[in-house]
Simulated scan of single mutants.
Amino acid sequence: MARDKTRPAPRGVLVQDPCLVRTVWGAARVAAARGLEGTVGTSWEVSRHPHGESSVAEGPWAGVGLDAVLIADPEGCLGGHAMVRGAFLDAAEPLSVQVHPQEAYALAHEGDHGKTETWYVVDAEPGATIVAGTSAGSVEELETAVAGGALDGLLVRVPVEAGDLVHVPAGTLHALGAGVLAAELGNDSDVTYRFYDYGRMDGEGNPRELHVGQGLAVVDPSSRPEVTACGTSLGEGVAASVSADGYEAFVLDVPEDLVWDFGGRPAALMVVAGSGRASWDGGAARLASLSGAFVPAATGEVRLTGPMRLFCATGM
């Protein structure tokens, strides 16, 4: 598809209007940040996925869905690298105990990508935990526990607090706990298999669907999410980093002024503390608290002004 010549090439820090999803487990923090009443569970901040597409909030591409932007200039936006996805998850209640598939299984059975993800804990109530794997020694043990209603006894729960980084490889049994607000970056996918959902009902009063068979086909009982605290800088403002399948995620502390180059890769930015501005050759944008932005691969250097903390991922 030829690029739309009525607009300049998409470059810079493209702040997004998110796709907001009100879930049965959602809380009010993300909604309040946008001046909305009620609760929002998932806010798809940087996404081309059809299940929750974001759109450009301002500038010459304002109002255009992110997928259309990428289709209009695939080389400039992606540069031959993978797309990365960003969302906020705001949990008043625990999310379902779930697992995401690996790439080969997802492509063969779902027509979607596999899903590895990394969370940054933006806020956590005292005593908040996550499900971080299982003590089961085999898939068969896990299957027996699910069938017998004894899964809870095999779940590994670990405490989390604001500033923690949690890496969840595909195939890992996991769940975000009650009271946690997390920023999530990961593969361009939306495939989730639920093992257990606390008997909750959907909006029509029906039990939410479980996917035990698919989950057992992809789960790795030995896999544990990695939880690390952001602390000593790794250089140039980087407080923590994770290399994953298809992307690299890192936490970037921005003081009053920092020049950053994403290395010719597409990037998703999530503002997880403070607020600031971004400027580049040809434009500037305000970065509000709890907002997300997409940076096309061909953008080049970006000048960031804080103080703020960014949770970022670049496609591999």
Rank of each mutant, 00 (worst) to 15 (best):
L142Y: 01
E226L: 06
P266Q: 12
D152M: 13
E117S: 10
A2R: 15
F294A: 14
Q98L: 10
R224C: 02
Q16V: 02
C230Q: 01
A28E: 11
A293P: 04
A128W: 01
L142F: 05
V191M: 08
Q214L: 12
R200N: 13
N187F: 07
V272H: 11
A136H: 06
T192H: 01
F311W: 00
S96G: 11
V238H: 00
D73R: 04
A87N: 09
A239G: 04
G52V: 10
V122T: 01
Y105T: 12
P18D: 03
L95A: 08
A229M: 02
Y120P: 00
V242W: 04
A273F: 12
P10E: 09
H211I: 12
V271S: 08
A297P: 04
H211N: 15
V131H: 00
T299P: 02
M201V: 14
V219N: 03
G179Q: 05
S55E: 08
S243K: 07
G41P: 03
E53D: 09
P74T: 09
G52D: 02
L258T: 01
V166F: 06
V30C: 10
A92K: 08
H109I: 13
P18A: 13
A57Q: 02
A68V: 06
A2V: 13
E143I: 04
G263W: 13
H113Y: 09
L151Q: 04
A28P: 05
V242Y: 01
G35P: 11
V295R: 01
A62D: 10
A72V: 12
A132H: 00
S138R: 08
D152S: 14
A244K: 00
E117Q: 08
G111V: 12
D164T: 14
G213C: 06
G35Q: 14
A32L: 06
R194K: 15
T6Y: 12
N187P: 04
G264C: 12
G76N: 14
V166T: 07
G203A: 15
R7N: 11
A217Y: 05
H174W: 14
A217M: 09
A106Q: 01
V139F: 09
K5L: 13
S243H: 05
E141F: 09
G65P: 13
A297I: 05
T6L: 13
H174Y: 09
R303C: 07
H174G: 13
L154I: 12
G237Y: 01
D152G: 15
T42C: 12
T129R: 01
C19D: 13
A217W: 03
F262W: 08
G52T: 08
V40P: 03
P50L: 10
S54V: 01
G231K: 00
D197A: 15
F311L: 06
A162D: 14
G203L: 14
V218C: 11
H49V: 09
L304D: 04
H81R: 15
W25C: 08
V131K: 01
V121A: 05
E226Q: 10
M1E: 15
G213H: 05
A229H: 03
Y120W: 08
A124T: 02
A313M: 08
A31H: 07
A249E: 01
D123I: 00
T118P: 00
F294T: 07
